[in-house]
Simulated assay, not measured.
Amino acid sequence: MSLDFGAKSDEKWRHVSLSTSHGSYQKDDQAHLVGHAMTAPLAAYIPGQTGLSDADQDALTDLYIRGTPANTLRAYERDLIYLTAWKAAAFAAPLNWPEGEAVALRFIIDHSRDLTEADPQDPALTAADALITQGLRKSHACPAPSTLDRRIASWRAFHRMKNLASPFDAPLVRQARAKARRAAAKPKAPKSANPITREVLEAVLATCDHSLRGLRDRAILMLGWASGGRRRSEIAGLMRQDIDLKDYAKDGIIWINLVETKTTQSGKTPKLVLKGRAAQALAFWVEMGDINDGPLFRPITRNDDPLERALSPDGIYQIVQKRVTQAGFPKGFATPHGLRSGFLTQAALDGAPIQAAMRLSLHRSLAQAQQYYDDVEITENPATDLLG
């Protein structure tokens, strides 16, 4: 059995082929997921309403692609592959549009329990084995609630793209999801085991020598921390034209123009400022690396020469991990998100107003940013000394 999702208008998105009979899937680069999710005629699901023309369908597909962050599109890709494979393994059938409530309920039940000790004849175990064979599932353990939430969110998004009601909005299915979330509730693991506070950052920066690689890594670490705790995808996505040096010679200030972030829309992201040592490190990297256009941060060859292509977000991850370990901290001590959490933690330690810190971190939620301040402020709470 083969399920083919064809691309329509965007050359960036290619064909996905899932072969359930062979227990494997093949993927050429990225799938045209938005196109697949939207190409079925709307008239087939909305009686009496005229379907979109091919030109309108192409335009709408292109609009979804351009208006959706790249990371979200990649998540859609992974989730569509997983959902299609699961439906084939559990029901020997392709996804339906709209999907049935019974299928949605079964999906929640199958992914809300540990199958390690399940009966060998359990259908959920059989489906899980098929997914493990295809490399889409790691083990029989209960998936993380956040993973299940994301896949359900993607499934619902695919229904919205077709202008269809989602089965996950049915009362019984919603109640089952709520119960499953509560049953699997556990403390949320931080994205970084430890925040990279100023003291930690100084130790990490000390590992950066005067080679081109060292200059690059120092600029990455300082920009990532001092500009508000940038995400690794934001650092990797910076281009030379996003860095404005017009005020550097006079005031020692560098302006950073992020196109968009996880919490801001394209063209509506406020300018960020880099000052002091961080600005110096970035300006020195631009000069010594001869970065006149193109990607700001790039891989470095063994001969200490920068390549033309950009560093990937995973490359940023590897750099942070390597430098943290070289600084003498245990393996896994901190990830790139430690730059973000460390910036906010240090702001709280230094008594900076949370609104000022959020102006740089671009947190959309005050409650989320407040968590870092709460961890610091509780140690200064007089009520913690009542027993002396």
Results as ranks from 00 to 15, higher is better:
194 N>G: 03
153 A>D: 00
385 D>C: 06
196 I>S: 05
373 Y>M: 06
68 T>Q: 00
186 K>Y: 08
112 S>G: 14
356 A>I: 14
324 V>F: 01
212 L>E: 06
235 I>Y: 07
339 L>D: 02
98 P>V: 04
313 P>T: 07
206 A>K: 15
387 L>E: 13
169 D>G: 04
381 N>F: 01
192 S>W: 04
69 P>R: 08
106 R>E: 09
101 E>N: 06
246 K>H: 10
323 R>G: 05
277 R>C: 02
137 R>W: 09
138 K>G: 06
294 G>K: 08
33 L>K: 02
225 W>H: 15
126 T>F: 13
327 A>D: 00
310 A>H: 04
382 P>S: 07
264 T>S: 10
386 L>R: 05
285 W>R: 14
99 E>D: 11
183 A>E: 07
290 D>G: 04
136 L>G: 03
349 L>G: 00
9 S>C: 14
329 F>D: 02
135 G>H: 06
237 G>Q: 03
316 I>L: 00
62 D>Y: 01
187 P>K: 13
369 A>W: 07
160 R>G: 11
310 A>W: 00
245 L>Y: 02
354 I>F: 04
387 L>S: 10
37 A>M: 04
301 T>K: 09
209 D>C: 11
231 R>Y: 02
109 I>A: 13
148 L>N: 07
166 S>F: 10
186 K>P: 02
200 V>W: 07
25 Y>V: 09
360 L>D: 00
320 V>A: 01
242 D>L: 07
39 T>P: 00
154 S>H: 01
121 Q>L: 11
240 R>L: 00
132 I>V: 15
138 K>P: 03
244 D>N: 10
114 D>Y: 09
232 R>G: 02
101 E>T: 13
270 P>V: 02
342 G>A: 05
61 T>D: 02
95 L>P: 00
114 D>K: 04
330 P>Y: 11
373 Y>A: 08
174 R>I: 03
204 V>I: 15
15 H>Q: 12
86 W>E: 00
353 P>Q: 10
269 T>P: 01
116 T>K: 08
56 D>M: 07
227 S>M: 01
327 A>I: 13
149 D>G: 08
303 N>Y: 10
271 K>D: 01
133 T>K: 15
276 G>A: 15
20 T>V: 08
231 R>I: 03
101 E>C: 05
7 A>N: 12
285 W>E: 02
236 A>Y: 02
18 L>H: 04
251 D>F: 15
380 E>N: 12
169 D>E: 15
138 K>S: 15
99 E>V: 05
224 G>R: 06
371 Q>I: 01
